[in-house]
């Protein structure tokens, strides 16, 4: 009897593991192993080309703490996140509310809003390179009508981050709009009819019905845009290479530089671990504070 019971639990366990196996294999190869390996490597000094890596404990981290570029990069990244996350969210919500209302040419406007999302990254970079080009670029051309001289948006450390932020907001707001549109369509129309009959003003309707019921979407979009803010690399490679003078250098691009320009694997690993911790902190914020305040229907 006892044996039979054991057998059956074994069977259940065996099948569960079997079903989990495919995703487990992929997660192990592409997530767990790299994470552990990165943490391990961050304790070593290992330059590419040298086979022997030397254990140096926390020296890589100590070095980063004193590295001016690292702090510059972190500062840039925080400004970049502050610039893109709320703007994209607010814009996406406004666009969704706009195209969800009864307006003419609704599907055309939706398409226009979504269109930046479907353009390839490099194409977007090229479009905006043109827009920002000093002298004959689109913006400078318009500025010249008002007698304002040429501004090199991407070439000055004061303007380059703002220029990147504008471009990214343009690129991702339409994408987030789709989530908000889905969220809006999940809100029962009856609730708005109640508001109409009870005499709630348009702003109060948004404040008491639309906004709170969109909170699950907002949280989702918030997390996505926040992680995106720490993941931007491709546009920087194409447009600024982190310059001028590291003014547009962001964390992931710095990791790329350290790893594949300076070939310092140990330091790059330490940077990656820091980035990982930032991501974990974001996830913790989501799970333990925001999630509880949000109503999921």
């Amino acid at each position: 009897m006892k044996n039979g019971w054991r057998n059956s639990t074994f069977k259940v366990n065996f099948y569960s593991w079997l079903f989990l196996l495919p995703s487990l294999i992929f997660l192990t190869i592409f997530t767990f192993y790299p994470i552990l390996k990165t943490i391990y490597q961050s304790f070593f000094q290992s330059m590419q080309g040298e086979h022997d890596s030397v254990f140096i404990g926390l020296d890589n981290y100590k070095y980063l703490m004193e590295d001016e570029v690292f702090w510059e990069v972190i500062k840039n990244n925080i400004w970049y996140a502050l610039g893109t996350v709320p703007t994209s969210i607010i814009l996406a919500m406004m666009m969704a509310c706009f195209v969800n209302a009864k307006i003419r040419a609704k599907s055309w406007i939706r398409t226009f809003f979504f269109y930046p999302t479907v353009i390839p990254t490099i194409a977007i970079a090229n479009i905006w390179l043109f827009i920002y080009t000093p002298g004959y670029g689109l913006i400078n051309h318009i500025l010249s009508w008002f007698g304002i001289g040429s501004v090199n948006f991407l070439g000055q450390s004061e303007t380059v981050m703002a220029a990147m932020i504008v471009m990214i907001v343009w690129k991702q707001a339409g994408y987030f709009m789709i989530f908000y549109l889905a969220g809006l369509q999940n809100i029962p129309t009856n609730l708005y009819e109640v508001a109409k009959i009870e005499g709630t003003s348009a702003w109060n309707t948004f404040k008491t019905i639309t906004f709170p019921l969109l909170m699950p979407t907002t949280l989702f979009v918030f997390i996505i845009s926040l992680t995106n803010a720490f993941k931007l690399v491709d546009h920087i490679i194409v447009m600024t290479q982190g310059g001028p003078n590291n003014a547009s250098n962001l964390l992931l691009y710095y990791i790329y530089q350290v790893a594949f320009r300076f070939w310092d694997k140990g330091l790059a690993s330490a940077l990656t671990v820091i980035m990982l911790m930032i991501m974990v902190i974001i996830a913790v914020i989501q799970f333990f504070s925001l999630d509880r305040k949000i109503h999921y229907s």
Partner: peptide
């Protein structure tokens, strides 16, 4: 006359309660 000024109230089939309140 706007719905809010008709001084009527309505009960819906699905109750239309605000789920977050």
């Amino acid at each position: 006359v706007e719905p809010k000024d008709r001084n009527v109230s309505m009960v819906f089939q699905n109750y239309a309660l605000f789920p977050h309140l």
